[in-house]
Design a protein around this nucleic acid. Structure first.
Length: 457
DNA sequence: TTTTGAGTTGTTCGA
DNA sequence: GTCGAACAACTCAAA
């Protein structure tokens, strides 16, 4: 009996794991392996840390069978396959630009030796590139995509194969536990309270999805079987999962859009750069803009490696529309600090805010940092949690320290820009860019320098 | 091929 | 204080 390699990447689970079933179907001994790829470890230190803390759990779950290797997978995997005499290497298909290139190189390395890379399934309920319009083209608008996606149907989840003496790794156990707690306690109120950063009312499943400790198909099956399956909470949650898949689909069809404008409409957009704005961007990164909700979010990002979705939009809007900075600068910062940092969701979410993406926000939609704070952090608890210099302000007065006589007594900074002024400036610039969009079309956005952004993730 | 209805997340202004 | 309109046309998807 020969050996088959099962190469884990962002699918660190044993339940609902199609690649594992495919590896077993080959009728061989399955040898699990994880490769620490220096190319990926150079960015996103928080995710490297998270990964390294979950690998021991995976090794325990496989009764110590998991091999951990370091190096370029295009060298490591073919060499290992040769060592153990594996004819096939099984994986979950990767869909990001770097992952696809890497897998093509690994496949070529294996093929030179008469071996194969076999990809089964993907980290999505429906594989990116599998949902098409009736005309056979990819969707570019979310709502019709979501209709087609819901109608497409997906295979039922599968359990852990009985013939294996393995058990669920700790990360997968945590994911399932958190998921079931969410289903029991917070699903029904989800639609109403998901926008409230002061409450702990979101699922917090993003990091488990990022590492594949749970498969979205498992979640969709659980939602369909839930007593409140047709209620607004479950429906809204399905929509959020669908956004993740829509964005992965966009990146599948347009891989370059992870660091460049998806659309050329705003190719002439005048963004600020240079020393003057660098100082402002530094203040944004540190959570010292003088706008409490923005600062709370940016500090939560650094402290927790996570930021509430509503606040991600507000802070992103502030960088793009108040500081007039091109969105990849912010996308890079987010990706460097988010434990759940996902290339597709991050880049397309930023493009949505910047107005350059699919179904993007219209240019005149500019988030007001104080209005958003009053609406979604009504008592101010979220801001007080993350901005100690403002803890002495009570209730929603925390959102406008300039109105309190003692607002700046504990070192909180004055606003670095005037929002009302910058809002008008942003709208003017967008209007200008649109006037020139037609003549600029041929040039696209190649002029903007993305080399400084370390785009490999 | 042409036509038609529709389109995540906001804010401001004026009646 | 509340409400609808304006913001600006444009592109997509389906019939």
């Amino acid at each position: 009996m020969s050996t088959t390699l099962l190469w884990f990447r962002r699918d660190l689970r044993l339940g609902d794991q199609p690649a594992l079933h495919a590896a077993l179907a080959a009728g061989n001994d399955v040898l699990p392996v994880f490769v620490l790829d220096p190319r990926l470890l150079t960015t996103g230190g928080v995710r490297t840390q998270r990964l390294c803390s979950s690998l021991p759990g995976l090794r325990d779950a496989t009764r110590g069978a998991l091999l951990i290797r370091h190096g370029d997978p295009a060298e490591v995997i073919p060499r290992l396959a040769r060592e153990v005499g594996a004819a096939e290497v099984h994986v979950t298909a990767e869909t990001t630009p770097y992952g696809r290139r890497r897998d093509a190189r690994v496949d070529a390395g294996l093929a030179a030796d008469g071996r194969r890379l076999v990809a089964t399934g993907s980290p999505y309920a429906i594989d990116p590139g599998d949902v098409f319009t009736r005309a056979g083209t990819p969707y570019q608008v979310f709502t019709p995509f979501s209709r087609a996606w819901r109608e497409h149907g997906f295979p039922a989840p599968s359990g852990i194969p009985e013939e294996l003496p393995w058990h669920r790794p700790a990360g997968e156990v945590d994911a399932l536990e958190r998921w079931h707690r969410f289903l029991d306690e917070d699903l029904e109120g989800y639609a109403a309270s998901r926008d409230r950063p002061d409450l702990d009312s979101t699922s917090r499943m993003s990091e488990h999805l990022k590492y594949g400790e749970i498969h979205p198909r498992t979640m969709l099956a659980d939602l369909a079987g839930h007593p409140a399956a047709t209620g607004p909470g479950a429906q809204r949650f399905i929509t959020e999962l669908c956004w993740r898949e829509f964005y992965a689909d966009q990146v599948w069809h347009r891989p370059r859009s992870v660091w460049r404008d998806l659309r050329d409409d705003l190719a002439r957009m005048a963004y600020d750069s240079g020393a003057g704005v660098d100082r402002l961007v530094a203040a944004w990164r540190e959570g010292k803009t003088g706008y409490p909700l923005v600062d709370a979010g940016m500090r939560q990002l650094i402290a927790e490696g996570w930021m509430h979705n509503r606040v991600r939009m507000v802070t992103a809007s502030f960088l793009v529309k108040d500081l007039h900075v091109w969105w990849p600068v912010g996308a890079r910062h987010f990706l460097d600090h988010l434990v759940d940092g996902d290339l597709a969701s991050n880049s397309q979410g930023w493009q949505w805010v910047a107005g350059t993406g699919s179904d993007a926000s219209p240019y005149f939609r500019v988030f007001h940092p104080v209005t958003q704070a009053r609406r979604f952090d009504p008592v101010g608890d979220y801001v007080r949690r993350w901005v100690p210099e403002l803890r002495h302000l009570e209730g929603p007065t925390v959102h406008e320290p300039w109105r309190s006589r003692d607002g700046y007594d504990h070192g909180y900074p004055q606003p670095i820009v005037d929002h009302d002024h910058e809002r008008r400036e942003a709208v003017d610039r967008y209007r200008q860019a649109r006037i020139h969009a037609v003549q600029q079309y041929a040039h696209g956005s190649q002029g903007r320098d993305v080399r400084l952004l370390r785009p490999f993730t």
